[in-house]
Every structure is written in structure tokens, then in C-alpha cells.
Design a protein around this nucleic acid. Sequence first.
DNA 1: ATTGAAAATGATAACGTTTTTCAATAACGG
DNA 2: CCGTTATTGAAAAACGTTATCATTTTCAAT
Lengths: 138, 138
Amino acid sequence: MTQHPWLTQLNEQGYRLTEARRAVAETMADSGRALTPIEVYDMAREAYPALGLVTVYRTLEALEGIGLIQRVHQPEGCQAFITAPGGHQHLLLCQQCGRATLFEGDDLESLIQSIGHKTGYQIKEHWLQLFGLCSDCR
Amino acid sequence: MTQHPWLTQLNEQGYRLTEARRAVAETMADSGRALTPIEVYDMAREAYPALGLVTVYRTLEALEGIGLIQRVHQPEGCQAFITAPGGHQHLLLCQQCGRATLFEGDDLESLIQSIGHKTGYQIKEHWLQLFGLCSDCR
DNA sequence: ATTGAAAATGATAACGTTTTTCAATAACGG
DNA sequence: CCGTTATTGAAAAACGTTATCATTTTCAAT
């Protein structure tokens, strides 16, 4: 049986490998858009019907802690999660189809530094999300 | 009785002027930090004890619709609201004391335009929030 | 001032999501 | 294979938010 890299990472963090975690992890890893816990629950049960909703919540929490997924903030609600390859990234969401695209915010650093200087804040985290229409939907 | 400018705005939008709305509006207008509905409820009842929680939700919704307040997204939750003088603005939140500072994101426009070009998206909205320590707390 | 239609209110109940509890199960080092 | 310990899923509880509805209040028309 092939081992999904996310499971290896979970294992290295001290988590045991279970069917439930495999189902949740693979559902998240394979999805190109943000998913709510309930959506994950429904999708992951196709691979592992015995899965419980509570375990979905716990596994999402674990995956977020490791940095494999990140929370998505949207006007309608902020319960959704999406893959975060390489840690926290900036998101660009299509308002039509829900597709999520990740982008680099290199130029953001100087802006943030300037803001910190102007305001006197020591800035520790930043969080940028864009909304619009993807190339297919416009 | 002096009329708070927010109440005038509510009135112009077709809302009637009530004690409940006055209590909620003034609570929000006078707060320098983000408040959850429950916090607003507790604070506004000091001025108007008969206030109901449901009315808080409805009034916050109205104020958000007019653009006098905006929702604040934080790692711990996204239920809080804060004043938004001059419509939606960018937020800088102190992780220690909760103080909120608004800032201009002028330089952001070119970055966003560049992202849109690279990704093929037609970008319609953007959210930027920074977290850190304010000058008093660092 | 008085009136009356429509908006607004607050108490209660309903709702959906998230968390807690707990006995049973499964993982995995020894 | 065994025993410890993490993990699980079901059920219940807790939580925040929304819907319902009879009552009250606002405010424009008188």
C-alpha cells in the first residue's frame, strides 16, 4: 500500500496512522478548492464509510497544526479549509466556481515593513486573500 | 438630544430610530477594538438594559450593510466587528491588547493588478489584515 | 395632539455547527 | 502476541446564530 506523504508527516509528528486519518488527509490533499468539515465528512466517507464527523474535526485540527492545510476566510463563513503546500500561503478565490489559486506575495514584504514603521506595530503575521473570477468563469 | 451621525445615516437608509439601535450604534462607534455580538450586547445594555440579543445581531447586520462597521477575521474566530469609517479598510490588530489600527494600502493596488495579470483572474475584492504587537504592548 | 399602518422589538424556540464525554477499538513498540 | 496508550465513533451537551410571533414603538398623515 502506497503511503501518502501527508500520512508520513502525521506519523513523524507522533500521530498514529489510521484509516480515518488517511481518508480525511487524502480528501483534503486531492481537493483544489476549499472544503467545510461537513463536505470533507461526506467525501471522505466514500473511501471510509465508518468515519465519524468528530474525527474529521480532530484530523483537520491536526493537519492545520502541522501546516498542511489552512483555514479559508470568506464572506459567507470561515469554516472551510484548503491545502497549504509549503505552509501558509496567500489565496485567490473564484467567486463563481470556488476554485482556489495560491500566489506568492513577495512584494508584500516591503509594504508590510512600511506599515509597521508608520504605525509603530511589530508585525508578526499577515493575511491576504483576493476574490474574483477565474479565467474560466469570467 | 444630540443625534449621533450613525443614527442619521441609519435614518437616511430607511431605518427607524430606536433606543436599541442607538445603544448598539454608539457602542460600536465608541469602541477602538473589535467586539463580538455578545460583547456588544453586554456593553450596550449598560445604556439600554431592555436590549435583546437578537436586536444586536440585526443592528450589526444593518450597520455592516451600510458600511459603518466591518467584520474582523481572526485565528480564534471571525464573529467580531469593528468600526469602518469610510467603508472597508485594512486592519492591523494587536495580538496582546486587541487594539485595532486602520491603515491605507495604497501600494497594494499595483501588487493586486500584477497578481491578476499573472493568474488570469479578474480580481474584485481583497482582504488584508495584519497581526502583531502595538507600540504599547511590545 | 391623535391616529393608524408598518417597522421594530424581545422572549422563546428552533437550528446547525462544534465540543465534550466515554466506553470500545485499533495501533504499534516491546 | 501482548499491553499500553492513542484513537475512534456515538451520543449528548454546549455554543452561536436564526426564525417565529405577539407586543410595542416609530413616524407620517391627519
